[in-house]
Structure formats: structure tokens, C-alpha cells
Design a protein around this nucleic acid. Structure first.
Length: 463
DNA sequence: ATCGGCTCGCGCAA
DNA sequence: TGCGCGAAGCCGAT
């Protein structure tokens, strides 16, 4: 294997070209989005490059406050995952350096390591892209990034896709090539830690004295880390994949994988999940439906965020949606709630309140209810642009998987008709945006049971 | 329980 | 240029 071959892997983007300096001391993998030591294509590229160069590999992880407006809930989950990374990297003979604000800089770290090459992982979110752009300017080193958290490298899709039906055949055509096990290669040269590259211990109280937004507390139902993620995957595959197609849209049941927090932080990768589902002994229909959501719809969301720079606002939506929303901008709203009333789950609608409470209390809301939740915010807001904004704000603040392409795509679908189509008959406020009602959702699933379930959870929390 | 109509525009066949 | 068909819907008819 040659370095040029590695650079030509479709998962790899060369952000700063140049031949790796063979006088350098190591290959540095700057781990951001892909927080795992196994089935991590970015780590594999780093190790393979280092093995060609006959150098060791060190993973650099930085703890930066207020990254993507994250709060204590998110940081706690993230920090819980660091121990698994440390253990996994040790097995692969790779070093691990954790630094915390204000000693967190990758540029400073590279100045002391003098790497041959720096590898990063891909993240379509704008803030992550800006951070990388800034670092590229300062690093006088070759810098590659690896698209490690999607099955089909997002670059190969080339443009923003209009709908699931346009991206689906493109993705399916690439699965044979990309839905394959990630090789967990081991470093040939062992990284030897020295005092010069001191690291914080992953199990030390990393958040003590760290300037993090504590207004949203940690949750008890989800524990971060790759080990927990694999356990959750195993439970899902063994007990819930069978029947998934039928039950996934029944939020009163525990029928979904609940892997989104782990996928968001990269503590588990889509290859691991997809291959486990593919080889599971569940009916074909269940496996198909799950893989459609995990791969086609998840990667449609990544495609949206990557190719539509307006994903944080209603501006990201299609002309037909803009038109119909505009035509109904002056419709009288029967009910208006303030941001506070929404945040405190103080609406007249018990299903909506339950959804909001599930999110606030557990850090996770059932996928089907998320649609309803967002559509009602549109119904109860002065305008669609405000609705989009408050939905994003609440989602990003309380969901463990907030600040993720999935959240933005979901809100854009519900409020702006993204990836959807016009639906008649035209209604107040919604216009031709697809509508959902309490009455009809209650026909589809046992909303009383869902509401009761969340309320029981709330009582247990209070007492 | 299941079906058709509602409605728009992309992507492809022709 | 025409045509098929679609990320989760609703409603009313059968």
C-alpha cells in the first residue's frame, strides 16, 4: 500500500496537499466527530499511512467549551465515552492525548509532535467545517480528512438531493462497494508516551472547572461510550429488530434502536450497525426497513447539511414550500405559545407535552413523535421561520443527538416540507405542508399509553 | 381495514 | 415533452 493510494480512497479528502515529511515523528489523528477506536475508517487510514511511513500514531482529542452550543448533558455523555477510546487505542498500539481548554489547540500539539501527516474526520456541520478551515491555514503539514460516519462517502453524491427517492438509487448502487467491514489494522510502530505529550486521564473528572453550560443536566437513561453502544445494538438486534417494520412508529412501545445518541457522537459507526442488522436472523422486511432509515434517510440528512448552507433556517427549503408558507403567513393562529411555554411543556396538547417531556427528561424523543412535535410548533408559532428556529433550539439543547444533521433534516421536513411534497387540501397556517393531527396519530398508535409512560417517568424523577 | 383523492416537480424515457 | 411516483399525512367512502 502506497500513500498515494490511501489519499485516493473516496472516503479521503486531501485538505492540504504535500508529501508527508518522513523526518516527522508520528502520524496524528485529530479525532473530532468519530469518537471510537474500532470500525473507524479515519483511524484506519491514519494507521495505514503510519505503517507505510514506519511511524507511530497518536490520537489527539480536544475538549473545547461551548462547541456547537453543547451543554453539560452532551459533554457528560461525550466524556463517558473516552475510556473506551483509550482502551481500544491501546490494543491498536496507538497513543491517545486528551487536552482541555485552554491547552486544547491542535496546532500547538502538532508543533510539539512534528507530525508527518495529520488525519481528521469529516463532519458536515458548518461550525466543524470552519474549525477545520482555520486549522488548515495554520498547519504547514499535509492534512487529510476521512468521511468515517456514513456508508457512502458524501462527496460521491455530489449535490443536494431533492428527495429520498432521488438519493436512494445512488446510495444503493454504492452499497456493495462501501458497506463492508472496516479493517481494524494495528500500528506497526508503538507510540511511546513522554512527558512532552502529557494527556489528561480519560477517567479523571474532566468537566470539573470546565466552563460548560450547566443549565441542562446529564441524563441517567443513556450512558456514553462504544461499549454501551454495542450493548444497545446487541439488545436491539436480538429483541426488537424482529417486528421493527410494524412497530417502529408506535412510540408507546420500545421498538426502535435508540442508537442515535451513540451515532451522533461517533461512539458507534454506521458500518457496525448496518452489518449487524444485515446478518441478523430477523425477517427480511424488518431488516430492509431498518437499513432504509439507518442508511438512506440518515445519509439524506447528511447530504442536506453538507450541500445546503442554510440548514439552520427555513431558507433551506424548496420554492413550492416557501410559496405556500408565504401565502399563509398572515393566517390567524388560533393558539400561540411562547418559547417558555413550549420549553416547559405547558400546551393544551397532552401528546405534545409528553413528547417535550420525554426529550427534556431522557435526552431522546421517539422518531415518530418528533414529526408531530415539530409540526405543532409550526401550528402554534407566529411564523414558520420562528417555528424552525425554536424547534432547532429545543432539539439542540435537550436531545443527546441534537446538533446533528438528522435533527435539521427532520425539522426542515416537518416545517419546511424538505424532501417532501405538497399535500392537499390546503389548510390554515400549513398551506400545502403536510399536516398531522392529534386525532389521527391516536388512531395509529396508543397515544394514551405513550403519555402515561412519560408521565410515570416524570413522577419517578420528581420523587 | 383499505382505497382514492388531494398536489408538486424531479428525473428519466422518449 | 410527457409521465410516474414519492419519508412518515388527512379525510371520507366503502
Amino acid at each position: 500500500m502506497k500513500l498515494e493510494q490511501l489519499a485516493q480512497d473516496p472516503r479521503v479528502t486531501v485538505r492540504r496537499a504535500g508529501s508527508p515529511d518522513s523526518a516527522g515523528s508520528a502520524v496524528v489523528y485529530w479525532m473530532q466527530r468519530t469518537q471510537r477506536a474500532a470500525d473507524n475508517p479515519a483511524l484506519s487510514v491514519a494507521i495505514e499511512a503510519a505503517n507505510v511511513l514506519k511511524k507511530p500514531v497518536v490520537v489527539f482529542f480536544q475538549l473545547v467549551p461551548r462547541s456547537h452550543h453543547a451543554n453539560l448533558r452532551h459533554y457528560q455523555f461525550l466524556v463517558e465515552g473516552l475510556k473506551d477510546i483509550a482502551e481500544g487505542l491501546k490494543k491498536r498500539r496507538v497513543g491517545f492525548v486528551i487536552r482541555r481548554y485552554p491547552e486544547h489547540g491542535i496546532v500547538r500539539f502538532c508543533a510539539s509532535v512534528r507530525p508527518c501527516l495529520v488525519i481528521g474526520d469529516e463532519n458536515p456541520m458548518l461550525e466543524a467545517e470552519h474549525t477545520k478551515a482555520k486549522v488548515v491555514k495554520q498547519l504547514r503539514l499535509p492534512f487529510w480528512t476521512v468521511d468515517a460516519d456514513v456508508i457512502v462517502p458524501s462527496r460521491l453524491l455530489g449535490k443536494e438531493h431533492y428527495a429520498a427517492r432521488t438519493i436512494r438509487p445512488k446510495i444503493h448502487a454504492q452499497l456493495r462497494r462501501f458497506l463492508t467491514p472496516i479493517e481494524n489494522v494495528t500500528a506497526g510502530v508503538l507510540w511511546k508516551p513522554s512527558s512532552k505529550f502529557r494527556s489528561l486521564a480519560p477517567e479523571s473528572p474532566l468537566l470539573d472547572g470546565f466552563p460548560v453550560d450547566c443549565s441542562v443536566g446529564p441524563v441517567s437513561g443513556f450512558c456514553g461510550g462504544s461499549t454501551e453502544a454495542l450493548k444497545a445494538l446487541d439488545r436491539f438486534i436480538r429483541s426488537r429488530l424482529n417486528g421493527y417494520a410494524k412497530n417502529r412508529n408506535r412510540p408507546e412501545l420500545e421498538a426502535t434502536s435508540q442508537l442515535s445518541p451513540y451515532l451522533h457522537f461517533g461512539q458507534i459507526g454506521p458500518h457496525t450497525v448496518a452489518l449487524a442488522a444485515q446478518r441478523a436472523r430477523a425477517p427480511l422486511q424488518d431488516r430492509r426497513v431498518f437499513l432504509e432509515e439507518l442508511i438512506v434517510r440518515r445519509e439524506l440528512a447528511v447530504n442536506f447539511v453538507r450541500y445546503n448552507a442554510d440548514y439552520e433556517s427555513l431558507k433551506s427549503c424548496e420554492p413550492w414550500a416557501e410559496k405556500t408558507i408565504g401565502a399563509h403567513a398572515r393566517d390567524r393562529r388560533k393558539i400561540l405559545y411562547t418559547d417558555m411555554q413550549l420549553e416547559n411543556a405547558e400546551t393544551h396538547d397532552p401528546l405534545w407535552n409528553a413528547a417535550q417531556k420525554q426529550m427534556v427528561l431522557t435526552g431522546w424523543m421517539h422518531g415518530y413523535v418528533r414529526m408531530y412535535w415539530a409540526k405543532k410548533i409550526l401550528e402554534w408559532s407566529p411564523c414558520a421561520a420562528d417555528a424552525y428556529e425554536i424547534a432547532v433550539k429545543l432539539n439542540d439543547r435537550y436531545e443527546l443527538d441534537g446538533r446533528d444533521p438528522n435533527g435539521y433534516a427532520g425539522i426542515a421536513w416537518a416545517i419546511g416540507g424538505k424532501h417532501d411534497r405538497a399535500w392537499g387540501p390546503e389548510r390554515q397556517v400549513f398551506g400545502k405542508i403536510r399536516y398531522m393531527s392529534y386525532e389521527s396519530t391516536s388512531r395509529k398508535f396508543d397515544s394514551q399509553a405513550y403519555i402515561a409512560g412519560v408521565n410515570a417517568l416524570e413522577k419517578r424523577k420528581v420523587t
